Structures are given as structure tokens and as C-alpha cells.
Amino acid sequence: MTESAAAAAAVPPRFDGLKAVFINATLKRSPEPSNTEGLVRLSGRIMQEHGVVVDVVRAVDHDIATGLWPDMTEHGEDVDDWPALFGKVLAADILVLAGPIWLGDNSSVMKRVIERLYGCSGSLNDAGQYAYYGRVAGCVITGNEDGVKHCAMNVLYSLQHLGFTVPPQADAGWIGPVGPGPSHLDPGSGGPENDFTNRNTTFMTYNLMHLAAMLRAAGGIPAYGNRRSEWDAGCAPDQVNPEHR
């Protein structure tokens, strides 16, 4: 590395203007302590120290209806808090889904959040792309049973499929002894001091900020070849849309 490159690398970057939203899919309602929130706080603190505006939402505190429409009150539900939460997602450059492991899988709350994200994924941005294009996403998983990587695979696959951009090392997790045992924030668990977990959470956080800043500077994902509006109009580049033959 050259001397100038080394000097530049030593300067902590700023990410002023970026916004991040963490959705905690714990089953515990506020103010009950959430072990997942331990990793949310670690990642969020790093972001805030570098100028990112951070919003944390505990999904279970909100009445999120079951369904795949953007607003389920238009489809028979009396209450649906999802439209307001979806507005927070669209206002953010970074989305981090955080949740616990139950029976080796993501929580029911996490699944509902992903379902509702999916239900809104067909809307388009100003460039005619799907709504989540130009935003980055990652996840953190906690538990005292096996399944961190399984849960992360499911979450990250879902997010990239919906249009989010996933950077390298976009997941982090903590897992205690398999079976009954201490959770992440329990006294003596070793969770907050775990070097592997703290390293992965830190790397994930910086990678999310770096990629979000790159996308913002570039004006998002280039729109050539991925506009739903062009495809529907029968003018997609380089291929024939079977619906308009």
C-alpha cells in the first residue's frame, strides 16, 4: 500500500446523509429486554458514530396484519401498521433485519416482516425499477440453539430477491451452547464479549455503509435492462417479452 493510500485508509469515513432502519423481529414486546437488540445496538452505534441516522423498530410492538397487500385494511383487516413501517423502509438507505432463532429457524415475526416486504416489492421507483433497488440490506441473528447460518441464508436470499443489494459479509450472529442455556445479554453468557460475533457485526456494518454510500453516489443501480416499466411496455432491451409477441 502506498503512503498516501495508507493515510487515506486511516481516516475514519463519514456517512452523513445516510439513513438506516433496523427491524427487530424478537417475540418480546417492549420494554422486555431483547437479546437480539444487543447486536442491533452494536451495529447501530457504529453507524451513528459515522453520521448515519438510525431508526430501530421492534416489529412485535406494532399491529402488522397478515397478508401480501401493501395495506391490509383495504382487504378486510381492521388495523394494519405496516404502511407506516414500509414508509420507514423506503426512507432508509440501509435495512437490517434482526431476529432470534426458534426451532432452528427464523421467528414468526421475521417471516411476517419479510412477507409484508414482499407484498410491497412490486411497486416501482422513479426510474421504473422495483422499489427496493438502490438500497442495501443485511441481518443479525441470535439464539442459544443451532441455526444462525440457516436463518441468515433465508433472510439474505429473500432481501436480494426483493431487490435489495447485499454487500460482502452482510450477516452476523451469536449463538450460545446448543439447547437450554444463557442468551446473548444474560450475565456470564460471553455474548457481548465474543470476538467472532463482534468482528462480524462490525464488518457487516461498515460494508453496509460503504455500499450504501457507493449506491447513493452512483444514483442507485443503473436502470438499463432492469426496468419493469419497459418490460411491460414491450420494449425491454436485448430480449423479446413473450407477452408482447
Rank of each mutant, 00 (worst) to 15 (best):
V96A: 03
L68P: 13
P222A: 06
R58C: 03
H62R: 13
V60P: 03
E193A: 06
N24T: 02
V136R: 00
N241R: 10
L27Y: 15
A172D: 12
D238V: 06
N226Q: 11
L95H: 05
V52S: 03
P12N: 08
E243C: 07
P177L: 04
P33G: 03
L215E: 11
L68W: 15
R112W: 12
V21I: 00
V136F: 01
A233R: 06
D55A: 04
R112H: 14
M153S: 12
F164L: 02
W82N: 11
H50N: 06
T26L: 01
L159M: 00
R58T: 00
Q160P: 13
V54K: 00
N226H: 07
I46Q: 05
C139R: 13
Y206K: 11
P237E: 09
V53G: 09
F196H: 13
F22Y: 10
M214Q: 15
S108I: 14
F196C: 15
V79G: 14
A131L: 14
V56Q: 01
P187A: 03
G225R: 03
M204Q: 10
A59T: 01
G234L: 01
R29H: 15
D71P: 03
P237F: 08
G191T: 04
T66F: 10
D238P: 04
V148Q: 02
Q169C: 15
A212S: 14
A25D: 08
M110F: 13
G104S: 09
L95V: 05
K19N: 06
K111L: 12
P12R: 05
L162C: 01
H150S: 12
Y133T: 05
N35K: 08
A20N: 08
G163W: 01
L39R: 08
S43Q: 11
E77V: 11
I141E: 02
I114N: 09
R135F: 05
E77H: 14
A218S: 09
S107D: 06
H150P: 11
W231L: 05
C120T: 10
V56H: 04
T201Y: 09
V79F: 15
E115Q: 11
G190L: 05
N144C: 05
D93T: 07
S108W: 13
G220W: 02
G219A: 08
G44M: 00
H50G: 02
P168S: 04
A236Q: 13
D126A: 08
T26Y: 00
E3Q: 15
Q129M: 13
